[in-house]
């Protein structure tokens, strides 16, 4: 079964971009592009759809509805197609061409929203549609749905604990819906409260880090819990793009730009350590961004 292949993604050690770190410092990356839908979002999307089905909220004839800047929509689209469900997705019009093609391939109905409003404009559109015709749409609301972060509590965190054999000392991840960071951090702290957990945001409200949010000026996701973060780091767009390219050329990891931000932050953190096992997460593959000439000239 397709959804049985969600999770259990590889955790690999970065060996070349880590040059210059103290000998007893390791940096590991969890490769979420190995999920069947190609991104970390498979985990939350599957948990959210399964909950909608089992709770009885999804009644015959209803369509699934949510907003997404791309990857969650693709994950929903794949899972919905395999279950005979129908999905409507509010997507900023400046989402790239690969994303729109993949979504259409899965049969997703796309409602394009104002590119000037970013992902917050897509959220507002989905809320308005759900409020106007609640009998037609089941609004999944990945930003508020506790199944989002709980998917990481129950899968991402145990996988990291298992694959590092309990040796993880630091966890670094980007904030978008915040589900990955919040759920994984709660899970890891349950194993060992001393694990230092660092949340990564863009360094400015206007940025090029697809999938990440500058929370100060965004609609704050209701699942966000600032108390779980031990520290915050602010990733510059240009440095994140440079790191994304280095991951491809030096590690053989063709990853997306939010992965560049995560590894940039993980390495900056690791540079200040004498010893430790730093784990970060690469949300998706660079193949999803190849049309963007500013990323891959």
């Amino acid at each position: 079964m397709l959804t049985a292949r969600i999770g259990n993604t590889p955790l690999v050690r970065l060996r070349r971009v880590t040059e210059g770190l103290a000998p007893r410092v390791q940096v590991w990356a969890k490769l979420e592009s190995f999920n069947p839908g190609g991104s970390v979002k498979d985990r939350a999307a599957f948990a959210i759809i399964r909950d909608a089905e089992t709770s009885g909220r999804l009644r015959p004839g209803m369509r699934l509805l949510d907003s997404s800047s791309g990857n969650t929509g693709i994950a929903y689209g794949m899972i919905a197609a395999a279950r005979g469900l129908h999905l409507t997705l509010c997507l900023p019009a400046n989402a790239n061409v690969e994303r729109k093609k993949i979504l259409r391939a899965y049969g997703v109905e796309i409602v394009e929203t104002d590119p000037l409003e970013g992902s917050d404009g897509a959220i507002r559109q989905a809320r308005a549609m759900a409020a106007a015709t609640p009998e037609r749409y089941l609004y999944l609301d990945q930003y508020s749905n506790p199944c989002n972060w709980m998917a990481h509590l129950h899968s991402t965190a145990p996988e990291i604990w298992r694959d590092t054999q309990g040796a993880v000392t630091h966890w670094v991840a980007g904030l978008g819906t915040t589900g990955t960071f919040v759920g994984t951090t709660r899970g890891l702290k349950g194993y060992n409260p001393d694990i230092h957990c660092v949340a990564v945001q863009p360094d400015a409200p206007f940025h090029g880090l697809e999938g990440l949010k500058f929370l100060e000026t965004s609609i704050i996701p209701p699942i966000w819990d600032p108390s779980v973060a031990d520290a915050h780091m602010a990733a510059p767009t240009e440095a994140s793009i440079t790191m994304m390219r280095r991951l491809a050329r030096e590690e053989g990891l063709l990853a997306g730009v939010s992965s560049g931000a995560a590894v940039w932050a993980a390495l900056k953190l690791a540079a200040g350590l004498e010893q430790g096992v730093v784990v970060t997460l690469l949300p998706d593959s660079g193949e999803r961004y190849l049309s963007e000439s500013h990323l891959w000239p």
Binding site: S69, N94, V97, K100, G118, H207, E210
Partner: peptide
Amino acid sequence: LTIVPSIAGGAS
């Protein structure tokens, strides 16, 4: 003139 971040890819 419209300023748009290429998150992701620009208008199409």
